Simulated scan of single mutants.
Amino acid sequence: MSTDPTGDIILNNLLYSCLSEKKRGNEQFVPEHTLGIMLSGESQLLTPRGNRIAREGMIGLIRRNQLVKALKVPGEDGQFRSISIFLTQDALRRYSAAANITASGPYTGDPLLELPPDPFLEGFFHSLMPYFDQPGRLTSQIADLKTNEAIELLLQHNPRLSYFLFDFSEPHKINLEAFMNQNYMYNVPVSKFAQLTGRSLAGFKRDFEKIFRTSPRQWLMQKRLSEAYYMIKEKGRKPSDVYLDVGFENLSHFSFAFKKTYGVAPSMV
């Protein structure tokens, strides 16, 4: 078991979040299919396809390789609580082979699905809670069984989810310029941008410099600072409310980079 800087408890491929104050999630890239339930509070999600709200009691399924920003908001009980299980590609490939289930082609539907209420899926998540109190009881064998149980319950819930779960194709090559102008504010490594545009890291950097005439890191810095300047100067927003929105990790780094570029602290604009 490990606890990340946000206070989330990570146990094998399980994640339990419990917060008593509004907080932004650090993770902005979803590497594996993720099945989760909102136990209390809500999660406000910013995605390239628009904003979503995951409310208390909702069960959702997020497709892998997604850019998502999350704001976790406690509910009336004063807490934000959620449980997620990551359905890895290895686990899904093993299940697919054993059950002889395949997807007929690439999945083209919504990458963020809200599932109708299901007492069996709800019961599944509640069955995970004791393991966060006694993590030693979650052996690798039980973790595998729980993962397979989640997959089986999803397929019983809706057999057509096989198209979602068992599409093992990787992102195809897409328009790099349009993608970056839409998604520069997500704070993920350049290697993830390369993956999402269907390129190797070397190919991404080569194509990027042909289009933008600069390196990805330099362009991202200038693009984020330019947007921050606009938000502060023209929209009257506070630097402390802006830096996360445009893709910086912390306020001090943002303030240093801003002053270096514009000659004044962001609070003085």
Results as ranks from 00 to 15, higher is better:
111 P>F: 06
111 P>N: 01
111 P>S: 04
112 L>S: 00
112 L>H: 14
112 L>G: 00
113 L>W: 00
114 E>D: 09
114 E>N: 08
114 E>F: 07
114 E>L: 14
115 L>N: 01
115 L>T: 03
115 L>S: 03
116 P>E: 12
116 P>L: 09
116 P>H: 05
117 P>I: 13
117 P>Y: 02
117 P>A: 02
118 D>C: 10
118 D>M: 01
119 P>K: 04
119 P>H: 06
119 P>W: 01
121 L>N: 02
123 G>M: 05
125 F>E: 06
125 F>Y: 04
127 S>K: 15
128 L>I: 13
128 L>T: 09
129 M>H: 00
130 P>Q: 09
130 P>L: 00
130 P>K: 04
131 Y>E: 04
132 F>N: 04
132 F>C: 12
133 D>W: 08
133 D>R: 15
133 D>A: 12
133 D>L: 13
133 D>G: 13
134 Q>S: 13
134 Q>W: 13
135 P>N: 05
135 P>L: 11
135 P>A: 11
136 G>R: 15
136 G>T: 12
138 L>F: 04
138 L>N: 01
139 T>N: 07
139 T>L: 03
139 T>G: 06
139 T>F: 06
140 S>G: 03
141 Q>D: 15
141 Q>Y: 09
142 I>V: 05
142 I>C: 00
143 A>C: 12
143 A>S: 15
144 D>E: 15
144 D>G: 06
144 D>M: 06
145 L>M: 10
145 L>C: 00
145 L>E: 13
146 K>Q: 03
146 K>E: 03
147 T>E: 06
148 N>I: 07
149 E>C: 12
149 E>Q: 15
151 I>G: 07
151 I>Y: 03
152 E>D: 08
152 E>T: 14
153 L>G: 07
153 L>P: 01
155 L>M: 01
156 Q>Y: 14
156 Q>E: 14
156 Q>M: 03
156 Q>S: 13
157 H>W: 01
157 H>N: 05
157 H>G: 10
158 N>D: 15
158 N>S: 14
158 N>K: 01
